[in-house]
């Protein structure tokens, strides 16, 4: 088991290393002078301020030292948690801005991912059992997973937000409220949360349902299922085993889907102006706020790595083979 997790951990460390390197490298590969762009983004200021800013950015980017030195400096500041200052929300530090967004991402993504995974798997297993359900659920599942996240988000916002007028369609809470712990605020928060959650949930649900349906049919044809059937075991037991074993690739699938989920979260947050990192990175791009873009990228990678690690731990708990260290490649 330790070998399995150790190998995974090595991959994650390398991934982090690569991500930070990309983060550092790309602005330096691009044409143009980012400092000029950034200063011009801040709008007209007096020359003295411009000079101060230029010095600040020069120090941050440290463009006057050799490349390798710049690279090491970049790493140092990453570890110090110094991700620079945002130009869009000047002079707030990037880290602060991101920290304020993270809770909304967790609030949105964690329930959407987990609930869609549980519901999708159970539904898929049910579909594999009944033909009529299979014939209706399967096409619906394919349509759902093929739906671009933002389109479903737009449709839901239009239908349930504008036409039916049930849900608000922008922000995490009403403009006239400040975040505080009260029943009124929580209610408002949930009301704003529901549509983005629902649209993420629905697209992912389709994918899990199809995946489980196909896996369980495969497992029901597996040798161990046939053996149990030959020994007269009732369908209930055979299906229970098949379901449990089909969950294993679905857990791996969760890890593989994280990239798509990130894309979905970005698009959904943009539609609903939901103040998570996805919305933040798009705002940063539109305003060419380079430090904020870099910071968001880094945090997205960190989130994905953390999620991967949690999934690995879950996998080890569920699959005895990884515990025994007897499989080379499980995920």
């Amino acid at each position: 088991m330790s070998r399995y997790l150790g190998r995974k951990l090595l991959i994650y460390l390398l991934t982090f290393f690569l991500a930070v390197t990309i983060d550092w490298l790309i602005p330096r590969l691009m044409p143009g002078d980012p400092i000029n762009v950034m200063i011009s983004r801040l709008g007209p200021r007096n020359p003295q301020e411009v000079q101060l800013l230029r010095e600040y950015y020069l120090k941050i980017f440290a463009l006057d030292v050799p490349m390798w030195q710049q690279y090491i400096n970049f790493w140092k500041s990453v570890f110090r948690g110094d991700l620079g200052r945002s130009t869009l929300f000047f002079p707030r530090p990037v880290l602060d801005i991101i920290k304020a967004s993270v809770p909304y991402d967790i609030l949105l993504l964690l329930p959407a991912i987990l609930l869609s995974w549980f519901a999708g798997n159970n539904f898929g297993a049910l579909a594999a059992r009944r033909r009529w359900l299979d014939n209706t659920v399967l096409p619906l599942g394919y349509i759902l997973t093929a739906t671009p996240y933002m389109w479903l988000a737009l449709l839901l916002a239009w239908a349930l937000g504008i036409v039916a007028g049930i849900f608000p369609i922008a922000g995490a809470y009403s403009f006239d409220l400040r975040p505080h712990l009260s029943w009124r605020f929580i209610q408002d928060l949930l009301l704003h949360w529901f549509l983005p959650f629902l649209s993420l949930f629905m697209v992912m649900f389709g994918g899990w349902a199809i995946g489980m349906r196909n896996m369980i049919i495969y497992e029901l044809e597996a040798d161990y299922s046939r053996y149990l059937e030959a020994l007269g075991a009732p369908q209930g037991l055979i299906r229970r085993y098949a379901f449990r074993n089909a969950l294993l690739p679905q857990i791996t699938g969760l890890a593989l889907q994280l990239g798509t989920i990130v894309a979905g979260a970005v698009a959904t947050e943009v539609v609903f102006a939901y103040p998570g990192i996805g919305n933040l990175i798009v705002q940063a791009i539109q305003n060419q706020d380079y430090f904020l873009i870099q910071g968001c990228f880094l945090f997205i990678i960190l989130g994905v790595l953390l999620a991967n690690l949690l999934i690995d731990i879950a996998y080890v708990i569920v699959d005895p083979r990884t515990r025994l260290g007897m499989t080379g490649e499980a995920a």
């Binding site: 597996a222 040798d223 161990y224 046939r226 053996y227 149990l228 030959a230 020994l231 007269g232 085993y241 449990r244 074993n245 294993l248 569920v318 699959d319 005895p320 083979r321």
Partner: peptide
């Protein structure tokens, strides 16, 4: 009738047991 009266040792005995 299976198992109690008629039973099988399958060709795929290597994979006949639930791996988990």
């Amino acid at each position: 009738f299976r198992y109690r009266h008629v039973s099988l040792i399958p060709q795929y005995a290597m994979n006949a047991l639930n791996p988990t």
